[in-house]
Design a protein around this nucleic acid. Structure first.
Length: 581
RNA sequence: GGUGAGGUAGCUCAGCUGGUUAGAGCGCAGGACUCAUAAUCCUGAGGUCGAGAGUUCAAGUCUCUCUCUCACUACCA
């Protein structure tokens, strides 16, 4: 357990705007960030959890066009939908912003100007495919054609799906736009700004190698890119929707009409922009979280992301931040201290995919089962060490066994018994004995371990301990068997019931970050005051409830998932062979 | 092709710097209990740790070869 309060800045990778996110996105960044934020708050830390929708880029424009809407309108709508989806899953953002906000635009332009002043940005000419029919430049993968290697006719401009060879769209035979299907495409020269990451690679390597709290996945990806030699990255695109490009003085850049910053340049800056929006809305001080010369030196910054985002968070964004601080009078920005990278949740052998509409999406999931069920299952099976398979059967087992049987039934059995035999009050009398010593010892070894695992962001294991604590409660009741003693010695039975009720309270308190709704039901039924629901100290938990405290049996906490539902969902969401493509 | 991750009980996964009979949950079988959402508790059966070779007194754990899966590969984000 942490002895001291600290300030913790948490961000989860920005969900892209082109649709409600699937369970893989939820499990790989937003949900673990939320759980971590909740745990840290309960431990008494000062937490700021920031997220936002990532709204720029070609897919946003195309999705808007498909929906027959203006991009800005589409993004506003989808932002709202994602906000609702997040709220439905009880994601406790302190701020859920938008990368299209004024603040982010200003910051992005400021970073661009500063980086250019520091010699880290330069304009270069590159070749890009332009589609006359679409009236737009096409990112590589939106160009299709015949593979020069294997003659596959639907090879994408970045890679051939048939032979797997990496391609350049210029090499495709008979190229066409995958947006419109038009063959009226040509290669044009276009000017773009490049971020000279190569010049920062020594600094980055020193910084990366100094990190001790990154998971191996993150370190190995970052070092791999450094080992291969960091390439300069183009940070502008030929698009209308985005942040206008400025020159070194911060004015609209000559010759860059119709160009905007690349979404991956401005997206992480949106972490800061969203914090500014939070500050403007709440009266908070954004600089105290982001500028080490303005109070952020005592902040611990923790990022959550999927493994596809690691390079951007460990190299590109740090280049932006460090590159703005090269001068004596530079801008000392807060760099990430520790990060947690997740693998994928896989869906019956393949990936979840937003664009292919594969898998279960947040809005669909919430219609099937309460958010607590998803939160528990996804975190108990988080893809921490490798990709993790989602199956309906496992989901059912998580809900029915862990939540309904082990936790829900425990709460139910002891509260109902209290109501029927002890007037619905925490009973007095009796003397503790060996069984109580046993459960106290059990909890006192498992509880600190569980907290340490949460602090280390080892969610699977932390939830394993939580479950073990719940299960120990059931074992305790079996040992203490108050219903047996009740026949001959009510005081002896009271000992077991009292301990059982204190366990219910404890279980509710520790469950809050994972299953906030059920936890609240439990704690409300137990009449636990708000002030006693935090994790600041668990000392004395075994006698925490005052004798005579009225307790009620909460409604059924978790309804079981029936086999027929699993059959229906399997049918409804595929989940089998036919989705393989 | 390159790089990385992974292949451990029927299923989903733990197994740190090599060290007694390889673990957990689910599922399954048997038993106990009856307070409880037919819930809970106990016991048990299940593994030549992807294949092969090597290093070592000792290898799931280190080395090499092979094989299968997945991801990334910089203009999708």
């Amino acid at each position: 357990m942490s002895d001291s309060q600290s300030r913790i800045l948490i961000t989860s990778a920005l969900p892209y705007i082109n649709g409600v996110k699937h369970l893989g996105n939820l499990a790989g960044s937003m949900l673990p960030a939320d759980v971590y934020a909740r745990v840290m708050r309960l431990l008494g830390h000062d937490v700021l959890y920031i997220c936002a929708t990532d709204e720029h880029g070609t897919p946003a424009e195309l999705a808007a066009a498909e929906a027959g809407m203006a991009v800005a309108e589409y993004c506003a709508l989808m932002h709202e939908k994602q906000r609702e989806a997040g709220a439905a899953f009880d994601l406790s953002y302190d701020w859920f912003g938008r990368s299209s906000s004024e603040a982010t635009a200003k910051l992005t332009q400021q970073f661009s100007a500063t980086l250019e002043q520091n010699g880290l940005i330069e304009a270069r000419i590159s070749k890009q495919v332009y589609s006359n029919a679409d009236g737009r430049y096409l990112p590589d993968r939106y160009v299709e054609g015949t593979c020069p290697n294997c003659a596959f006719e639907k090879a994408r401009g970045d890679q051939c799906d048939n032979c797997g060879k990496l391609l350049d769209p210029i090499d495709l035979i008979d190229p066409y736009s995958s947006v419109s299907g038009s063959h009226d495409v040509e290669v044009r020269e276009t000017e773009h700004l490049y971020l000279k990451q190569s010049e920062m690679s020594d600094k980055l390597r020193v910084w990366v190698e100094a990190q001790t709290s990154w998971p191996p996945l993150a370190t190995s990806i970052a070092l791999k890119w450094l080992d291969e030699g960091l390439r300069d990255r183009s940070i502008t695109r030929d698009l209308d929707w985005g942040i206008p490009v400025v020159d070194m003085d911060g004015n609209q850049r000559a010759g860059f009409d119709g160009k905007v910053y690349y979404v991956w340049f401005d997206a992480p800056i949106a972490y800061i922009g969203a914090t500014q929006d939070w500050a403007a809305d709440t009266g908070g001080d954004w600089a105290r979280w982001w500028r080490t010369d303005q109070g952020a030196d005592d902040v611990t910054y923790v990022q959550f992301m999927g493994k596809d985002n690691v390079a951007f968070h460990t190299l590109s964004f740090p280049t932006t931040l460090m590159g703005a601080n090269l001068e004596e009078e530079g801008e000392p920005w807060k760099l990430v201290d520790t990060l947690k990278a997740f693998n994928w949740v896989t869906w019956y052998g393949g990936k979840f995919s937003t664009s292919n509409k594969r898998g279960v999406f947040m809005d669909q999931a919430i219609a099937l089962a309460p958010s607590d069920c998803w939160r528990w299952h996804l975190m108990a099976n988080a893809p921490e060490s490798s990709d993790a398979a989602f199956t309906w059967e496992e989901f059912q087992a998580s809900v029915n066994s862990d939540l309904a049987n082990v936790l829900g039934n425990f709460v139910n059995r002891i509260t109902k018994y209290t109501v029927s035999k002890f007037d619905g009050q925490v009973p007095d009398g009796g003397v503790s004995g060996g069984h109580e010593d046993w459960i106290i010892a059990e909890v006192s070894t498992r509880l600190p371990l569980m907290i340490a695992l949460f602090e280390a962001r080892e969610f699977r294991k932390a939830l394993g301990e939580m479950r073990a604590i719940w299960a120990a409660g059931n074992e305790y009741l079996t040992r203490a068997a108050p219903w047996t003693h009740y026949k001959t010695d009510v005081d002896q039975a009271a000992v077991g019931v009292r301990m059982g009720l204190n366990l219910v309270s404890l279980f509710g308190i520790i469950a809050q970050p994972i299953i906030p709704r059920a936890a609240k039901s439990i704690l409300d039924a137990m009449n636990i005051p708000e002030a006693h629901r935090n994790w600041s100290s668990f000392d004395g938990w075994a006698n925490g409830l005052p004798v005579g405290l009225p307790v009620a049996a909460p409604d059924v906490l978790f309804a079981k998932i029936e086999d027929t539902q699993i059959e229906d969902w399997t049918e409804q969401f595929g989940g089998d062979a036919e989705v393989q493509s």
